[in-house]
Design a protein around this nucleic acid. Structure first.
Lengths: 245, 245
DNA sequence: CGCTATCTTGATATGAATCAATAGCTGTGG
DNA sequence: CCACAGCTATTGATTCATATCAAGATAGCG
């Protein structure tokens, strides 16, 4: 039961009761593997399920006319996807496997049951959904009002922060299995320009990048450059209703 | 009871039971007025309340080093704010009155009670929060991957869509009480450039702007230009738990 | 009737896109 | 084990969108 990565994740925010753990573990069934590059669902699809990422990276993306792509968010182990797809029937973005991933699917109706029987979990889902909004808002600030280098710094720091929140470690070296094109599509720049910026940032001894390994060489200066605020450490659960038996 | 604008708003998505209406109307007390330009709360404040907009426009904004500003979202009548502030104690953005506004405040704990007693409302709040994420994601796509004119078109259309969803009308004329600087801060452009783009768009007979009145002259072409998708019409409530007495 | 915020318009500077060509890796099959 | 195919990364030359700087022009407001 506690080998559920979703349980592990939620336990980070809240001390789950056995009954709550059960309810969650129940959601998380049918693990299924997708290969890197495959599409879990497509923008506009009629989606009736939610996904929990077990292992690997997935990403939400959306396409624009000229074949352009905007990456909206990355999803790691323990993340709940479908987020976007829950308010409306049609998916607002596509979900693509960035590496080989293992995900569990569950139908939305199961979520309805959970809301009914475990109000505290409902509150937690609500709070997690708000974290997503905040993450998007932070990204929006970066895209709207800063130049390339700061955007990249921001992206790197926010990925690092999220991965650290999951792993509990604090390593300056992080694995980012993304190409320069991916990075560009995430921060709204060209692959070519991303390349140049990474070179500059390397020369300035801010980072080091080698294949999929990124090292945050001078994190304080990166934070300064990006005006980064790490918000992913904890959730405020003080307003949550009490757990039900 | 039904003069609560929040009830009116939620009723648009769901047929509320009397008990649910009561619970909501209960949240919405102590209406309070703020003058245009005043700050309801500030980035970083310790916020323990949520707001419901009764009347007027508010906006969430965040500041960057060089005094730059990014407007994240506009809030109209019936909107729930605090959104961003609910997962964490510290507000992630400031809330400012764009016009004179009337808002109701309620403590987060009241939300906890609602989650406990009215799971269907919890589901609705969750879905509304997802709408917010989707709105942000759409904005992100616009900022990351389109040029100025398309960004503006996108902003105009999305404001129009949201206002229409509230009013039920379908008027090509909308009131946007924002300056060119505000528009710029929302789409990540300079006030000067916004001015030029608006002139161009007027010449191209896409829009007409006069003070705070904006007319969508050629909406089909605007939609085409912005690749706009209107998602604000309805919520998919099929997965919601049943209403409780 | 001025005052201040907003808008308009021009000249110039700059970050980033685009176009284009080459170089490096990685995996695959002969 | 080598050679080739196909991504991914690097680098340069040029163009374009948008920012910046600067100076009026309007318009609402007290």
């Amino acid at each position: 039961m506690s080998d559920s990565c979703f349980v592990v994740r939620l336990n980070r925010y809240l001390d789950l009761t056995p009954s709550e753990m059960n309810a969650i573990a129940h959601l998380e069934r049918e693990p299924r593997e997708y290969h890197s590059g495959s599409t879990l669902w497509q923008e506009g699809d009629d989606v009736s399920e939610l996904l929990i990422v077990h292992h690997g990276w997935a990403l939400s993306e959306t396409r624009l006319p000229a074949g352009k792509r905007q990456i909206l968010r990355f999803h790691f182990s323990g993340d709940l996807i479908g987020a976007s797809g829950i308010a409306f029937r049609d998916a607002a973005s596509s979900i693509v496997a960035a590496t080989d991933v293992v995900v569990c699917r569950f139908p939305r109706s199961a979520l309805g049951d959970t809301f009914n029987t475990h109000p505290r979990l409902a509150a937690l889902f609500f709070a997690m959904s708000q974290m997503e909004s905040i993450d998007l808002a932070d990204r929006l600030r970066a895209l709207g009002r800063s130049e390339g280098k700061a955007r990249l710094a921001n992206l790197f720091l926010s990925i690092a922060a999220r991965m650290r929140a999951v792993s509990g470690e604090n390593n300056p070296v992080i694995r980012i299995p993304l190409t320069q094109s991916d990075l560009g599509d995430a921060v709204g720049l060209t692959q070519v320009h991303v390349n140049r910026l990474i070179r500059q940032m390397t020369e300035e001894k801010l980072i080091t990048r080698n294949r999929s390994t990124l090292t945050l060489v001078d994190e304080p200066r990166l934070i300064e450059l990006a005006r980064f605020v790490d918000r992913f450490s904890a959730i405020d659960s003080s307003w949550f209703p009490a757990a039900k038996a």
